[in-house]
């Protein structure tokens, strides 16, 4: 088994273990082999730009031959989306009802899971728009967060399907009661704006589920020498696997001995050695990559 067979890579692990450095090393590894690679930071506290010594934004920026990088700002994405909905509400909702809709929109901003869903939207968008890339490496936010993101699409797909059937049922009765209706039921379904939104979301979540559990995806967990990163890392591997995410590789960042409690069978182990200084900037990272070993257990 090697990592070349996969297209999407998600790196997880406790904060501060070296996820960003590991993702850059991985992306560099692929780009040096001639693969067009996109490196994406999903962490709200971005460190990718600092590590690469480059100013990154929402659009892919070339940082090296065949290597592109971008930083997603979930907060900003959230803001943009809610503004769009608000604008739409102002256009179609009668003033008598607008107040109630606006109140709910305000709630949405701080509703539980909003940031996670905004991140999921970004992953979906990048996966769809990033079809031109050979490899996409995601530097994700800390573990629990990633796990939830992966575990939810399964139940979410069912839930959206339920909403769709309720709306279709309502439209059916509306169709039966409206004797002047000239359109066919199928046309009504196709033109209904609510069904349009629902099926759009359903498609998004089906794609995400496929992305998170599919054959083109490899999840990896980053460890370092400390006890906490180890324990949390082991737990992350277990949680990810239980959620159906394929954990294919482990990154041991400055780890001197093996990790016994970890069944690293059938997993690629990437060993990143101690570096003489902090690996900031592409040249130093390239040097570090030369010292990094890839082992198949």
């Amino acid at each position: 088994m090697n990592l070349n067979g996969f297209k999407y890579f998600f790196l997880s692990g406790k904060g501060g273990v070296g996820k960003t450095t590991s993702s850059i090393l991985m992306a560099l590894y692929f780009s040096q082999r001639g693969e067009k690679t996109l490196l994406v930071s999903l962490d709200p506290a971005h460190s990718l730009g600092i590590a690469l010594k480059a100013k990154l934004g929402e659009l892919p920026k070339k940082v090296e031959e065949k290597l592109f990088a971008l930083e997603v700002n979930p907060e900003k994405e959230m803001e943009k989306y809610l503004k769009k909905v608000e604008k739409e509400a102002r256009q179609i909702v009668s003033p008598a009802f607008l107040g109630e809709v606006e109140e709910e929109l305000k709630l949405a901003h701080s509703s539980p899971g909003a940031l996670e869903l905004a991140t999921a939207d970004a992953i979906y968008r990048i996966a769809v728009e990033g079809r031109g890339f050979d490899k996409i490496v995601f530097d994700t936010a800390p573990s629990g967060y990633t796990v939830r993101l992966v575990a939810s699409p399964n139940s979410i797909v069912k839930w959206w399907k339920g909403l769709i059937s309720v709306r279709e049922e309502a439209l059916k009765y509306e169709f039966l009661s409206n004797l002047k209706e000239k359109r066919k039921l199928k046309e009504i379904f196709r033109e209904d704006p609510i069904l349009k939104v629902l099926t759009k979301r359903l498609k998004e979540y089906e794609t995400l589920k496929e992305l998170f559990t599919g054959k083109e995806t490899a999840f990896g967990v980053v460890f370092n020498e400390g006890l906490l990163p180890r324990e949390i890392g082991v737990r992350t591997v277990r949680e990810l696997e239980e959620a159906g995410a394929p954990v294919k590789f482990l990154v041991f960042n400055r780890v001197k001995n093996g990790i016994e409690s970890l069944k690293a069978k059938n997993k690629i182990v990437i060993k990143v050695p101690e570096f003489k200084e902090e690996p900031i900037g592409i040249e130093k990272l390239k040097e570090l990559l030369k010292l990094t070993r890839w082992e198949v257990k």
């Binding site: 709630l107 949405a108 509703s111 869903l117």
Partner: peptide, 21 residues
């Protein structure tokens, strides 16, 4: 009962506003 997907559902509210009242 909090709806974990509320953030994505608000998109529907403009179309259901008449029922909201």
């Amino acid at each position: 009962v909090p709806n974990p997907f509320f953030y994505h559902c608000v998109e529907l509210l403009p179309y259901l506003s008449e029922n909201l009242k």
